[in-house]
């Protein structure tokens, strides 16, 4: 009987070694260690043995059972590892095939630019104030210190409407007086984004419709040095921390002193290139200290209050940042253009 046991043990180990798949191992387990397997059948033979032989046989069969169980687990692990390896090997993908993309949406590039401007000025306490596109001559010109027939009006050709004194705003500066009336007597710190309209030829550089962001700060302690500091900070956040700014004297009827702000060209690092017309500087915005007439029209006494204002064109900023050379692309809304941003 013991010899039979040894024989079973040797035979089973042999078969176990020959098994190379988990399926064969499963069968082996059922046939060997299962409920009606060979080892069990041997156990049942214990009754044929004498009482003296039984403990020895019992010991032996338990040992075989344990050994085979261990051998099985060991073998199973080996086979599983091999199987997994071969499964992995056979299921490799061509990872160069294109992925499955979700349907893509996007914000208009000008919305993206506007949001960047909102965020930077928002951090400095400037809130967004919006005013109408269709404006009166008074808000757009007169109260901003553009008298009728003033040469400065020629700089901005207006669209007139069938209602007398109603025009399409030529700049979002038109909202300055509205904002001041709205906030008086609090200090003012706003930016005024919006669509503007000028009666100009449509070319790659100019459009009859364009967006503008005007800014206005009014308070009892605001200087030209603050204007420089605030706008330089803005330029560095928008175009990079290393940017230099240059303020040049300029003219706007609603500011005095007035300044044009240039930013050192970020394309050529000031070396001179086609975009900056070899000057090393890019013209970014117009600005100045709010004209006393404008302050007074807004309800603020110029003897007590001062302020600064500025205005910029998001299209120009986007054109510079992305090398866009035709302003008409913005309102053409060709998805092949819009989806690049």
């Amino acid at each position: 009987m013991l010899a039979q046991l040894d024989e079973l043990y040797a035979e089973s180990l042999e078969k176990l070694k020959a098994a190379t798949t988990t399926a064969v191992l499963d069968t082996w387990y059922k046939e060997t260690l299962g409920r009606k397997g060979a080892v069990y059948l041997m156990t049942r033979q214990v009754g044929q043995l004498s009482p003296e032989e039984r403990p020895v046989f019992g010991q032996q069969i338990n040992k075989i059972k344990t050994d085979l169980e261990n051998a099985y687990q060991e073998r199973l692990a080996e086979v599983k590892a091999v199987e997994l390896e071969s499964h992995i090997a056979s299921s490799a993908l061509d990872i160069t095939l294109p992925g499955r993309r979700p349907a893509r949406g996007g914000l208009h590039v000008i919305t993206q630019t506007l949001r960047e401007i909102y965020r930077i000025f928002g951090d400095m306490g400037f809130q967004v104030y919006r005013s109408p596109d269709v404006e009166t001559d008074a808000y757009n010109f007169e109260m901003l210190n553009f008298p009728p027939h003033h040469p400065a009006r020629e700089m901005q050709d207006s669209f007139y409407t069938t209602k007398e004194d109603v025009i399409l705003r030529t700049h979002t500066s038109a909202g300055q007086i509205r904002a001041m009336h709205n906030y008086y007597p609090e200090p003012v710190r706003v930016i005024l984004p919006g669509m503007c309209y000028r009666n100009e030829q449509i070319t790659t550089r100019s459009s009859i419709q364009f967006t503008q962001v005007e800014g206005l700060a009014v308070g009892t302690n605001i200087t030209f040095a603050d204007l420089k500091g605030t706008l330089t900070e803005f330029a560095r956040r928008l175009f990079g921390a290393n940017r230099e700014t240059r303020f040049r004297a300029s003219y706007f009827p609603f500011t005095e002193p007035s300044a044009e702000m240039d930013v050192s060209c970020f394309l050529c690092e000031g070396e001179g290139c086609q975009v900056c017309k070899y000057t090393g500087w890019l013209e970014i915005l117009g600005s100045g200290m709010v004209h006393p007439v404008v302050l007074r029209n807004g309800g603020y006494d110029p003897a007590i209050y001062t302020g600064f204002a500025f205005g910029m064109g998001p299209e120009r900023i986007a054109m510079l940042k992305y090398g866009i050379n035709d302003i008409r692309l913005f309102w053409d809304n060709d998805l092949r253009f819009l989806q690049q941003f």
């Binding site: 400095m124 200090p187 710190r189 009892t220 302690n221 040095a225 603050d226 420089k228 500091g229």
Partner: peptide, 9 residues
């Protein structure tokens, strides 16, 4: 160039 020191609205 200075940073606005006026009262924040």
């Amino acid at each position: 160039s200075t940073i606005l020191a006026d009262t924040l609205p």
